Amino acid sequence: MMITLRKLPLAVAVAAGVMSAQAMAVDFHGYARSGIGWTGSGGEQQCFQTTGAQSKYRLGNECETYAELKLGQEVWKEGDKSFYFDTNVAYSVAQQNDWEATDPAFREANVQGKNLIEWLPGSTIWAGKRFYQRHDVHMIDFYYWDISGPGAGLENIDVGFGKLSLAATRSSEAGGSSSFASNNIYDYTNETANDVFDVRLAQMEINPGGTLELGVDYGRANLRDNYRLVDGASKDGWLFTAEHTQSVLKGFNKFVVQYATDSMTSQGKGLSQGSGVAFDNEKFAYNINNNGHMLRILDHGAISMGDNWDMMYVGMYQDINWDNDNGTKWWTVGIRPMYKWTPIMSTVMEIGYDNVESQRTGDKNNQYKITLAQQWQAGDSIWSRPAIRVFATYAKWDEKWGYDYTGNADNNANFGKAVPADFNGGSFGRGDSDEWTFGAQMEIWW
């Protein structure tokens, strides 16, 4: 008995050590931004985005507190085989008060198993909700290839000249389909599951310092038995992507060409959309029709120009041509140079221009935006974070068209359509004006 009692403290210590080691193995990653800002004409900070554009130049032009908190852990490992559990909870508030209630979004919860298939060394099996191989332009917060959501897949299969990845994910639309009631009355209240099937071939070395990635995505509306879509709904579509990445000037340049059809055009990033119906009456549900095509040509990157200068840049042309004439032509160009006074202090400027032409009206909206920021960051790279910055932003815009969301679809035949700025004596778009804002912001990723 005495021997047992003497061994007990040692056993407890060993158990505590094991539990401590396991606790220390938890990975904590994430992203956050928050700050305070004012508008020159009075009131809180207002942000500037061109009507019809899918993004905006973000430096000194973000008006919310946003965070993603990721917890993950390698829960099992034997040799080169392992299982990893990953989670991500995100939230966004308007940064107007101390207490701002919000419903967090559970954006990731997945398990990734590496090297589980003997004859596919280096590959990963995964299932669950996941940010899946996302491609974006940081300076405009624009995701041009992103099929994230609940799904499953097999990735990084070594095929000799590259890595092959296969995945299936889902994005549902509210009110996407109906069941038959009586007297030809349909009640569009059932969600429609939109499935996306993704095939990618990446890391193909085609020139010194250059790699090529090719991808095909097929999206479709997956209806339940005895349900139907509204007439004209976009049932399926394709997205084709080619991306060349070149190492240059201690950074990279990415050149991207994408072509999409029908349900893959509205978001243009790989998620299927077009079966959703915002109104019970299918007579007024025309606005979900996105049959047509999209072409996107994009070049972006980040480079170092000597010891003291870094720069991000982007140039993009996007043409969404829809059968219902509600598409757009959008082109944007911008730069973000950074001058480093010390390894932790810099001055950053961002200059961006957007131009969006309405397919329906032929009119154009444009905006110039310039931001000057003094910044303190954890390192001497344009990617170094955390960063604390004080900024001043000036924007000038001239908008000739907007979307008509007055009333509702039952009493407005133009609901959701592009109209000229002065349509029917109204005021659509943001008109011709300018404004400036100033404030302070922190940004961090880890």
Rank of each mutant, 00 (worst) to 15 (best):
L5P: 12
V256I: 02
Y286F: 15
W309L: 07
V390D: 00
Q273H: 04
E357V: 09
N281Y: 15
K269T: 15
M312V: 03
D398N: 08
I370N: 01
A25S: 05
I36F: 06
F48L: 13
T192A: 14
S165Y: 13
K7I: 13
Y91C: 07
Q258R: 00
V277A: 13
S263T: 06
A440T: 15
M305L: 13
E68D: 12
G17A: 10
I444S: 15
R360L: 06
K163N: 15
E74K: 05
W341C: 06
G43D: 00
T39I: 03
D404G: 00
T4N: 10
N355S: 08
Q267R: 06
G175D: 00
W126L: 11
R33C: 02
W446C: 15
M311V: 07
P9T: 09
E243D: 07
Y405S: 12
Q22H: 04
N326I: 03
G407V: 08
W99C: 13
R107H: 02
I117S: 15
N408T: 09
T241N: 11
W76S: 10
I297S: 04
S384L: 08
G60V: 15
R6H: 03
N321S: 02
G30S: 01
F391L: 06
D422N: 14
K329M: 00
G274S: 01
K56E: 14
G407D: 00
D280N: 07
V277L: 07
K364M: 03
G219A: 01
A109V: 07
G251S: 03
V18I: 02
P343L: 00
S182I: 01
Q112L: 13
S34P: 02
M305I: 05
N183S: 04
R430H: 04
T51N: 11
N321I: 07
D307N: 03
M316I: 04
E191K: 02
S171Y: 13
D354A: 04
G175V: 12
G268A: 06
E350G: 00
R33L: 06
N291D: 08
L229Q: 04
P386Q: 04
K396N: 07
M204L: 03
G175C: 11
N365S: 04
N324K: 04
E64G: 14
Q273K: 11
D27V: 06
V390F: 13
P208A: 04
V230L: 03
V348L: 05
G219S: 00
K163E: 15
S247G: 01
N253S: 05
S182G: 08
G270V: 03
D422E: 09
I344T: 11
T102N: 13
N226I: 03
A174V: 09
D198E: 09
Q73L: 08
V93F: 13
D422A: 15
Y286C: 08
Q46R: 04
Y57F: 15
A32G: 09
N291K: 10
Q46H: 12
N183I: 11
T371N: 07
M2K: 14
P208S: 02
T169P: 10
S433G: 11
N291T: 14
A23E: 08
S304Y: 06
N290I: 02
S20C: 14
G416D: 04
D103N: 13
G60S: 03
W238G: 08
A53T: 01
G209S: 08
N290D: 02
D187G: 00
A373V: 01
D363A: 11
T241A: 09
G301V: 12
V356G: 12
A260V: 00
L295R: 07
A373T: 00
I140L: 13
S178P: 00
E435D: 13
V216L: 06
E118K: 12
S358F: 11
A278S: 14
P343T: 04
M312I: 11
I140T: 15
R33S: 10
A233P: 07
M1I: 08
L212I: 09
Y218S: 12
S304F: 01
V89G: 09
G251V: 06
S247I: 03
Q22R: 03
N289I: 09
S358T: 03
M24L: 03
F423S: 11
G431D: 07
S177A: 08
A21D: 08
G215S: 00
F48Y: 04
I382T: 06
R296L: 05
V75G: 12
N321K: 06
Q22P: 06
G79D: 04
Q374K: 15
R360C: 00
M2L: 09
T261A: 00
K250M: 03
G113C: 09
Y66H: 09
V257G: 02
P121T: 13
N424T: 15
S346N: 03
N308T: 04
D27G: 03
N226D: 00
I36S: 06
E155D: 11
W38R: 04
F142I: 06
T265P: 02
K369I: 00
N253T: 11
T361I: 01
L71F: 08
N408S: 06
F428I: 14
E78A: 10
A260G: 04
P420S: 08
G35S: 01
A16E: 03
T261S: 09
G274C: 11
W376C: 10
D354N: 02
N281I: 14
A101S: 12
A23S: 04
I3S: 09
I140V: 06
D310A: 08
G251C: 07
M311I: 06
S177P: 07
I344V: 05
V111M: 10
V12D: 10
V256A: 03
I157N: 11
Q203L: 07
W238R: 02
D319V: 04
G362D: 00
D299E: 03
K129N: 10
I351S: 14
I206S: 12
Q133K: 06
N291Y: 05
N412S: 01
H244L: 13
A105D: 15
K340N: 04
E399D: 04
H29P: 07
F415C: 13
E443A: 02
A378T: 04
Y227F: 06
W341L: 06
R170L: 13
S92F: 07
G162S: 06
Y405C: 05
A167S: 14
N366Y: 10
N156I: 15
F83L: 03
T265A: 13
M24K: 04
D231V: 05
G153S: 00
G219D: 00
A285S: 12
Y313D: 08
W446R: 15
E357K: 08
A440S: 12
N365K: 13
S92P: 14
M312R: 09
A32V: 02
S182C: 01
S381I: 07
K114R: 08
M305T: 00
N226K: 04
G426V: 13
V257I: 04
K129T: 09
S179T: 09
V257A: 01
E44A: 08
N366T: 14
M338V: 12
D195Y: 13
L8H: 12
D325Y: 08
M294L: 10
N281D: 06
D434G: 13
A278T: 03
S82N: 04
R385S: 14
D310N: 01
D225G: 02
A278V: 02
I117N: 12
V18A: 08
D27N: 02
G362S: 01
D363V: 13
A152D: 14
S34A: 14
E443K: 13
R130C: 01
G60C: 11
T328N: 13
E62D: 07
V256G: 06
M345I: 05
A109S: 13
I36T: 05
T265N: 07
I335M: 04
K77I: 02
A221T: 04
V419F: 13
M316K: 10
G37A: 01
R134S: 14
G407S: 00
S272A: 06
N97I: 07
K364N: 03
L223F: 12
L154M: 09
W436G: 15
Q441P: 15
M19T: 01
E44D: 10
M264I: 03
G301A: 00
Q54H: 14
A152T: 12
N88T: 15
S381N: 02
R389S: 05
V12A: 04
A278E: 10
T192P: 06
P150H: 02
K254E: 00
V230I: 05
S179F: 14
G122S: 08
Y31C: 09
T245I: 01
N207S: 10
D398Y: 08
G315D: 00
K114N: 12
Q374P: 11
R336S: 03
R200L: 10
N287I: 03
S172F: 02
K81T: 09
H138L: 00
W76G: 10
D319Y: 07
N424K: 14
K329T: 00
S263P: 01
K254T: 01
G43S: 00
